[in-house]
Design a protein around this nucleic acid. Structure first.
Lengths: 210, 210
DNA sequence: TGCTATTTATTGAACGTTCAATTAGGACTA
DNA sequence: TAGTCCTAATTGAACGTTCAATAAATAGCA
C-alpha cells in the first residue's frame, strides 16, 4: 500500500490537486469565470470527477478558502514564535510573513491569500460558512490591532488610531500581489523588509533605522 | 430639440444610466456575474437595449473603466490645484482625494475606482484597450513616486524606496473600500485624514503632528 | 494462490438553465 | 418617410449538475 502506481491516483492526490488548482484558478480568474472544465483540465480528470470529492463547486470554494485561511493562521503563529516577544518585532514579523505568503503564492502551487478572498468570493458562500471564515479574518485583524495597542501602552509605538492603522497595514500587504513580478529586480525579501519598515513608521516606532 | 419628455429618454440619459449601473454592478458583483438582465433591470430597459449604445458587453466594460479612470485623474488634478505646491501637501491631498473617491463611490451612483479594476476586470479586455488603460494607471503611480522623490531631494521626506512606498500607499488607499462601512462611527473625512497622516509617516516626513 | 464480491474512483452523455448576441420589427419624433 | 430608440422572440454556446456505466483496487473466502 506504499505507493500507488497505475492510472488511478490514490484519491488524496486527486482531491488535493483539485484544491490546489482551484486555489490558483479562483484567484487568477475569479470563481465564476473558472469552469469545472478549466479545473478538470488542469488536474487531468473529467469535469464530473469533482463531484466525487465535493458536493458542489460552491463547496469546493468553501473548502479552498477555509484551508487557505487556516494555513495562513498556522504559518503566522509559527512565524511569530521565531520573533522576539516585543510589539515592534512581532509586528515586523507579521508583515514579513504576510508579504512572503502573498508573493510566493502568486508563483507557486499553494496559493495563500487572506483578505483577498473577501472581495467577491466570500459573497458566494452561504451565510454560515461566510461567518465562520470571516471569524478567522477577524482573529488576524485583532492580532495586528492588539499588537499595536500593546506597543502604544509600552511606549514603543505612538498612534491614536490602532484599528485604522491595522487595516491600512493589512491593505498594503494584501495589495503587493497585484503588482509584484518575480522577474523584476526586487526580491520577495526586499519587499518584505521594506514593508516591515514602512509599517513600523506607520505606528510611530521610535528607533527607526535611517 | 431642446428637451424630450415622453416615454423615450433622451438617449444620453439611457447611455449614462447604463454606464452608471454597470460601474456599480461590475464593482459589486464582478463583470462575469453581472448579466445584461441585471443591468437592464437596474436601468429600466430591456436587456437588448444595451446593443444600441455599445457593440458588446465587453465594450461597455471598456467604456466604464475608461470613464472611471479619466474621472479619477481629472478629479485628482483638480484636488491638487487646491493644495500647496509642496510635496507633503500634495501627497496628503492625493491620499485624501483617493480615499474620498473610494468611499463615496461605494455608496453613490458614480463608482470611482482606480487600481481596483486591475484585479480581474482589465484581463477581460483586448490587449490594446488594456494597454491604454494601464497607461493611465501608470501616470497616477508616476505622480506619487515623483512627489516622494521630490520631497526626498528637497529634504522634507526621507526614504530610500520611493517606488515601493508609492505602491504601498496606493495599496492601502485601494483597500479601504473593502472594510469601510458608512454606518460606523468614523466618517469618510476621519479615514481620509488618518490615511494622509499615515502616508506622511511612511515617507519619513519630518514635522509630524503628534 | 486463485475466484468472487464490494468498494473506490472516474467517465461520457444528457438535463435544465442561463448567458451574450442576433434578428425583425414596433413606436415615436421631426 | 426616414431616422432614432427600444422591445420581444429567438439562437447557440457554455454552464453546473446528475446519473448510469465501468474500470481499477481491495477484501473475503476457498
Amino acid at each position: 500500500m506504499a505507493v500507488s502506481r497505475s492510472k488511478q491516483k490514490s484519491s488524496e492526490e486527486t482531491r488535493s490537486a483539485l484544491m490546489d488548482s482551484a486555489a490558483r484558478l479562483f484567484r487568477e480568474k475569479g470563481y465564476d469565470s473558472t469552469s469545472l472544465k478549466d479545473l478538470a483540465l488542469a488536474v487531468g480528470v473529467s469535469p464530473s470527477a469533482m463531484y466525487w470529492y465535493f458536493p458542489s463547486k460552491n463547496d469546493l470554494l468553501y473548502s479552498v478558502i477555509k484551508r487557505t485561511l487556516h494555513r495562513f493562521e498556522d504559518g503566522m503563529t509559527q512565524a511569530l514564535t521565531k520573533a522576539d516577544d516585543t510589539p515592534p518585532s512581532r509586528l515586523a514579523a507579521f508583515v514579513r510573513y504576510y508579504v512572503e505568503t502573498q508573493l510566493s503564492g502568486s508563483s507557486e502551487v499553494a496559493a495563500y491569500s487572506y483578505v483577498y478572498a473577501t472581495g467577491h468570493m466570500l459573497d458566494r458562500l452561504p451565510d454560515a460558512s461566510r461567518a465562520e471564515l470571516r471569524d478567522i479574518e477577524r482573529r488576524i485583524f485583532h492580532f495586528v490591532r492588539g499588537t499595536i495597542e500593546q506597543g502604544v501602552s509600552e511606549g514603543s509605538f505612538a498612534t491614536d488610531y490602532a484599528g485604522t492603522t491595522a487595516l491600512a497595514i493589512i491593505g498594503m500587504c494584501e495589495h503587493v500581489q497585484t503588482w509584484f513580478r518575480p522577474e523584476g529586480r526586487d526580491t520577495v525579501e526586499d519587499i518584505a523588509d521594506r514593508y516591515a519598515g514602512l509599517c513600523l513608521s506607520m505606528v510611530g516606532h521610535r528607533d527607526d533605522r535611517r
